[in-house]
Amino acid sequence: MSIHPDLLNLLIGVFAILVAASTVGYVLQRRLSPDGSNKSIENLNDRIRAWWVMAVLLAIAFAGGRAGVILLFGFCSFAALREFMTLTHSRRADHWSLVAAFFVVLPYQYYLIWVDWYGLYAIFIPVYVFLLLPIVSALRGETESYLVRIAEVQWALMICVFCASHVPALLNLDIPGYEGRNVLLIAFLIVVVQLSDVLQYVWGKLAGKRKIAPRLSPSKTVEGFVGGVLSATLVGAGLWWMTPFTILQAGVLAFVIALLGFFGGLVMSAIKRDRGVKDWGHVIAGHGGVIDRLDSVVFSAPIFFHLVHFWWAGG
């Protein structure tokens, strides 16, 4: 599997930014927190290290082509579902629906992406699983919090498996004149979403005053939101050369992606507050859980997929 020159350029750009970030982090650490006592700087460096790991993983997956990308997001789905189900009300009576969710639904959804069966992967979880899994739980006869339990399992599967699987599904789009370059659509989506997160954080730190949703997420501010989304839109427009879009189209799509990503983070925060936890998990130092990092991608991926599918891949 060869790497497309556009992708190579992007990777070089991303790694250059990471080298710069690591350098800044190192200097800040030497200057302000030589004994590791400054929490924000330690957290910043944890985050930068985690970014390195994520960038390297993505690069490897891209180099592995279709199989690499599907496997990577399959594992992300698995880790996310594991975190999500931990915070639900599932009971012993749900054991078999959970086993089915992890070991049947998840692999099958990614298998459908692999064989490019759009007609089924677009409805497998929202229709078939939606109707069949509650039957498995009902057969065990436990009715306490039944609606809550089945709703939670369905929601977990929609977010962690169905939505996340739309990232590798971008590989399946047939866009005339863009053959063999679909992996760049994934790169575009992920770069815009993650940069939007980082830029919101940076704008919030620099200019943040008015809180958007103090009860959900004390760190999100109006200034961070506006600055982050707008600058991510500009960056997205500037990446038009690797997409099938014009500059304007790339900007509009980047705007939609960044906006959805922001609200995705807000929705997932609301769930965390409801469950009384700060992070979804503990597997990524500095970021918390996999869902903490994936929430915005998950919200933007299916809509980005369907917009491109409808307008560029012949509906």
Binding site: L81, M85, T86, V99, H282
Partner: peptide
């Protein structure tokens, strides 16, 4: 924490859940 939910009594396939 949580291992009892991973593998409740009488079940033989574990459900993946975060434990501490």
């Amino acid at each position: 924490e949580n291992l009892n939910r991973v593998m409740p009594k009488g079940e033989f396939i574990p459900v993946p859940l975060m434990c501490s």
